[in-house]
Each structure stands twice: as C-alpha cells, then as structure tokens.
Design a protein around this nucleic acid. Structure first.
Lengths: 289, 289
DNA sequence: AGGTAAAATGACTAATGAGTCAAGAAGATT
DNA sequence: AATCTTCTTGACTCATTAGTCATTTTACCT
C-alpha cells in the first residue's frame, strides 16, 4: 500500500471539492486515516503537498495524451482528433484532479507552480503548433496564434463541461468536433477571408523557448528519452515493476532538490534488464546532465 | 467623497491582486485609509463585502453592454460585433474587477454568489441566443448550444488575455473577429456539414428560466423598464444627477434586504422631473411588486 | 464656548489552522 | 526477553485574521 499515493489522492479529492484554503491538513490526514504528524513526514509543508499533486498528476495526464503522437500510422487529421480524444478520456479518469486544477486556487501564488503552469501551457501550444503546421503547412503560420488561442479556449471550456456535467460527453465525438471546428476556421484563414488578430509579439508570454534554443529543445530530447523507456517497458514481462521504478525516477527528478544518488540507484535497477539498458542509459544522461 | 465606493474599489484592487483569502479586512481598511471598525460599519462581514462588490460591478459592466442593443439602427451583424466591442471596452475599464472575477475564489462557496453567477451565465446565454436567432433564423436552433458554448469559451478566454497582457488588444477588432468566427461556424452548421454535440438536455444547468416562464420573463420586463429610464435620462440636462439617483436605486434594490422606504424616496426624486415620470413609475412598479 | 450626537478608532476576543515534538507504539535484532 | 530503532501520534505553540466594543475624535448645533 503506497501511502504517499493515498495521501495525494485524498488531498486531490478534498481540494477539488472545497478548494485549497478551505481544506486543512488535518482533514486530509483524517481522510487517509493517518495522523497529522505522519502526513508531515511525507510532505514537509502544505505547499509542498500541492506541488507534489501537480507533479504527480500532470505526468499521468500528459503521458496518456502524447503516446498517441507516436502511433504514427494514423493520418494527421485523424491523429489530431485521436489525441484530443485521449486527452478528454484522461480528463474523465482524473476528474477530481482536473476539478482542482480548474479552481486554480493555490498557496500565495508560488513561484514554482507558476513556472509549472507556464511550462504546461508552453507544451500545449507547442503541440498544437506542430499539429497545425503538419496539417496546413507553413502558410498557416501567420494565423497560428489565433487558431491556437481559439483551440485552447474551447478545449479548456469543454474540459470544464466534462468534469461538471452529469451527462457524459463522448470523448471521441468531442475530439472530432474540436478538430472539425479548427479545420473550418483554418480554411477560412487560408482562403484569406479573415485577418489574424494575435501575433508573436503579444503572445510571447505563451511561447516557451521557441526562440531560446536551449530550454525547449533539451526538453524535447528528454521527452523523447522518456518515451523510449516507457515504450520499451511495455514490451517486457515485468512491465509493472519497471513502470514503478521509472515512475519513481520521474518523481524524484522533478523534485526541487533531486537526490542524484537515488536516481542513479534506480537507474541501476532499470539497467539490470538487458532489453532496457540502452534506453535507460540515454535517459540517465539526459537527466543528470 | 463616497466612502462606500472607495472601499469597494480598494477591495477589488487587493482581492484581484492577491485573492480573497489572502486579503484581510485590515489590509483593505489600511488601503482606504480608514480603520477596521469603520469598514465594518459599511459591510457587516467580509462575505457581505465581496457580494456587494459583485453586485456593484456586474451592474456597471452589463449596463454598458446592453445599451448597444437599444441603438437599433445598426444592422444585426454589426450590432452583435458592437456589443462585444462595448463589452470588451468595459472589461478594459474594470480590469481589476475582472481579474478578481476570473480568480473566482470566494468565501466558502456562498449560496448567494452561486445564484448570482448562475444568473449571469443565464443572461449571457440568453443574449447570445437572441442574437443567433436574429442573425440566422430558427434553423440555427439545433446548433445553438454548440455555437453559444464555443462563443462563451472564446469570449471568456479573450477576456483573460485582455486583462493579463500588456499589449492591449483593440476591443473593436476583437468584437469583429469574434463575430466573424461565430459566423463561419454557424454557416458550416447551417450547410449541414457538422452535427451538433450539445443539446438542451445536457445544457439545462445553463438555461436560466427558458423553461420556467416566471423567473426570466419578469426579469426581462424589469430589464426593459430599467433601460427605458436610463435612456430617458440621457436626454436630460441633469443627466449626471439623475444617473446617480438611479444607480443608487439599483444598488439598494439589489441588496439582500432592500429598504423599501429608501427606494420609494429615491423614486420621488426621479418623478420630480416631468420627462422622467412615466418611466420612473413603470420601473417602480416593477421593482416593488 | 459648551454640549451633544454621530462617526471613527484600535485594542481585544475567539477561532482556525500550519507546523513541531516529546512520548509512546510497533517492529526488528540479538 | 531485553534492547534498540523506526514509525506514528496528537497535544501544543504560534501566527493570522474575522469580528466586537469601550473609548476617543469629529461634526454639528445652540
């Protein structure tokens, strides 16, 4: 029984329901069935707890969605729709986390969370951009921000609708629907009927490292290395065990002060499996550089 | 110097910046330059204060937007765009209120605020619906929720963009842009190219009194009476004075326990002006029924 | 100027909740 | 069984803040 995970789940549930400030550490402890002191042995502070929640769940939600990007025998348009579908399915699965995230209320606007949010938005936009360029070519470029902004707003509000409404929307239909709307507007832009409203200049806060080579590119490489490892793991017998090890690595590496020794140790566990060695080494290099 | 208003403004500023829970009554009092005790003589509780803020500003923002609906010599399409424009202008003007509203964090989910939010959404949707039907006729009806939902999400997210970004978006362009996007999607729906995804059933939480005659209809009538008064006032010399009286009536009538005597007294002030008498009486009947 | 009513003040109370830590329970080791 | 180690507990401290109210200041009137 993973107590840490149990705490995260209980906390997400409570905070999603009543908000961060109106959920006390005592309530969370009670809900898990442990004492407050014990809770504090897992998370040194309330802020630390909520940050861990974000780290934990963002990883889960994103992993789901981006795997589809790899299954590369779908035509672009369908793949785009499928990716939304998978994302919406993830939202349904992690409803309480999403509820919490949408409330958006946290501790005194933590530096760290802000960075995380920024990184998330950046990821979303960069993913959208890639898809738009792939679908419509470079000609869409002048209109990309308008399309991306529109997409992001509608996506977000459908998310809100899904987690609040009783009558469940079908993720598949929703994905198609969204892509269809994007398509209509994109074609209108390409036909030169509408002028763009948003440009690079004013959207700078949302473009993460598309200008600065370093940050985002290295992130991309790391992302690839992660994916390689996960993909390889799925082919193995001891899938579950290696997944757990890898998730633990991921968790540790996202901490503010990751313990290098822990990470190195965990990687040794992965490297024991011959079929995983190459991917593990690549990822380890990426993480410890 | 209206101290009550000064408090509302200071509070909006602080709460917009740091959130409801992280803004103390002491800070608000300090910011206005009065004592806490004095603050409590205006607002009996913190919750009461935030409710008053919503009541005060919603009125201001909405008033601006709906006036355009009356200037009826614009063609429907342009009027629709103009209404968005005016609304965006309002957002720019009441930036800190909007910031506060977008944070959405309030006291332990007050019954009253929830009702208010619901009413607001209802108003927005009913306004959108009217415009869509006017522009595209009854045939748009099966697609109205999809269009309205899309519009509402994009509208909301542009609002967020306006209040956060430094580079100011032009409300006029933004209004046109939004209406243009609606138009493209509406035409696509009408051409039978896309199927609707949302229907009355699942959108019931958002349809305020479109089914139940009473509530909304009577609200509409009252709305008309208000507009008639405001319109008449604009033709008068002492515009400013009568506006102030009317705003005061509006404020009082939105209180949880409106003082009927105060309202009756204020109406006497309006009825002194012969040209305003008829409209004032109609409104008074609406309010005191 | 003197007196009275109204308004403003800020020290005080009470509640809440984050974070600590000494003491005790459970488990491991010899 | 005795001892040591690790985990768990919940009573306690301390800071914050909503809301109160006796006292003081201001404004107004005669």
């Amino acid at each position: 029984m993973d107590k840490r995970k149990a705490i995260l789940e209980a906390a997400v549930e409570l905070i999603g329901e009543k908000g961060y400030t109106h959920t006390s550490m005592q309530q969370i402890a009670d809900s898990v069935g442990i004492s407050k002191g014990s809770l504090y042995s897992f998370f040194p502070s309330k802020e630390d707890l909520i940050i861990s929640i974000y780290e934990h769940y963002q990883q889960l939600v994103f992993e789901r969605a981006f795997v589809v990007g790899l299954d590369g025998n779908l035509p672009p348009y369908e793949r785009f729709a499928k990716q939304f579908q998978v994302q919406f399915e993830g939202i349904l699965e992690y409803k309480s986390y999403m509820k919490m995230q949408m409330r958006g209320e946290t501790a005194q606007s933590s530096e760290k969370l802000e960075k995380m949010g920024h990184r998330m938005r950046g990821r979303l936009f960069s993913w959208l951009e890639r898809n738009l360029i792939e679908l419509y070519g470079e000609e869409i470029s002048p209109y990309k921000w308008d399309l991306m902004w529109m997409t992001q707003s509608v996506y977000t509000s459908y998310t809100g609708l899904m987690i609040s409404s009783e009558s469940e929307l079908d993720p598949k239909e929703l994905g198609r629907h969204l892509v269809r709307q994007i398509d209509i507007l994109a074609n209108d832009f390409l036909a030169g009927e509408s002028k763009p409203l948003l440009d690079d200049e004013m959207m700078r806060p949302f473009s993460v490292g598309m200008d600065r080579e370093g940050a985002f590119t290295s992130f991309e490489k790391r992302e690839k290395a992660w994916k390689a490892v996960y993909k390889q793991i799925h082919t193995l017998d001891q899938e579950h065990y290696f997944l757990e090890v890898t998730n633990r690595i991921s968790e540790e590496s996202r901490k503010s002060k990751p313990d290098e020794l822990v990470i190195r140790g965990l990687f040794h566990l992965l490297k024991e499996e011959e079929k995983l060695k190459a991917e593990a080494i690549t990822l380890e290099e990426q993480l410890l550089s």
